[in-house]
Amino acid sequence: MPLVTAGFVVLDCAEPEKLAVFYKELLDGEQTEATANRVEIRGADGTRLAFRRDMNATPPSWPRPENSLQAHLDFVVEDLDEAERRIVGLGGRPLEAKDAAGPYEERGFSDPAGHSFTLRRTAPTAPKQG
């Protein structure tokens, strides 16, 4: 029998119910548990997140150094433009307006409570046809 039976990334926020809805929609997931101070979800791909009530939670200020990056999530998507439209429609906001150079295309966002996350799309590995 394993020592640990489940693992979660837990984000502190003032309104866990609202933040859970944002990520549930983003990850095409379902709510798996809820108490007065914590909501847990599982995304369609198995990603497990929890949101804990903290009335004194302050959003990270990344990229500014004060109260900087407290937690960071990465999500892989096929279409960055479509994902960005969905995130903004759900109440998230872009943090950066330019694409990162290199083999990955990335965009930074924050959720409605101010936690930062990155969408990234890996470059195709198959040779270009035609």
Rank of each mutant, 00 (worst) to 15 (best):
A6D: 13
G7R: 10
F8C: 06
V9I: 14
V10A: 05
L11K: 04
D12R: 13
C13S: 06
A14W: 03
E15M: 02
L19N: 02
L19P: 02
V21E: 04
F22V: 10
K24L: 02
E25M: 10
L26D: 01
D28M: 11
D28Y: 03
D28C: 10
E30T: 14
E30Q: 15
Q31L: 07
E33Y: 14
T35Y: 05
T35A: 08
T35I: 03
A36Q: 13
N37G: 07
E40Q: 11
E40M: 02
I41S: 00
I41Q: 11
G43W: 00
G43P: 09
A44E: 12
D45K: 09
G46R: 08
G46V: 09
G46S: 08
G46C: 06
T47F: 06
R48Y: 07
R48P: 07
R48W: 09
L49H: 08
A50K: 00
A50G: 10
F51C: 01
R53Q: 10
M55I: 07
M55Q: 11
A57I: 05
T58Y: 03
T58Q: 12
T58H: 03
P59H: 09
P60M: 01
S61N: 15
P65H: 09
P65K: 06
E66T: 11
E66H: 14
N67R: 10
N67V: 00
N67L: 09
N67Y: 04
S68C: 13
S68I: 11
L69G: 01
L69W: 12
Q70G: 15
H72D: 11
H72A: 07
H72Y: 12
F75R: 01
V76Y: 13
V77E: 04
V77I: 07
E78A: 15
D79G: 08
D81H: 08
E82Y: 08
E84T: 14
E84R: 04
R85G: 04
R86F: 10
V88D: 12
V88Y: 11
G89P: 06
L90G: 03
G92V: 01
P94Y: 01
P94F: 02
L95V: 05
A97T: 13
K98N: 12
K98G: 03
D99R: 06
D99G: 12
D99K: 04
A101L: 11
G102T: 06
Y104K: 13
Y104E: 09
E105S: 15
E106F: 12
R107T: 05
G108W: 08
G108S: 12
F109W: 02
F109P: 12
D111M: 00
D111C: 03
P112F: 03
A113Y: 08
A113W: 01
G114K: 07
H115P: 01
S116K: 14
S116P: 14
S116M: 04
F117H: 04
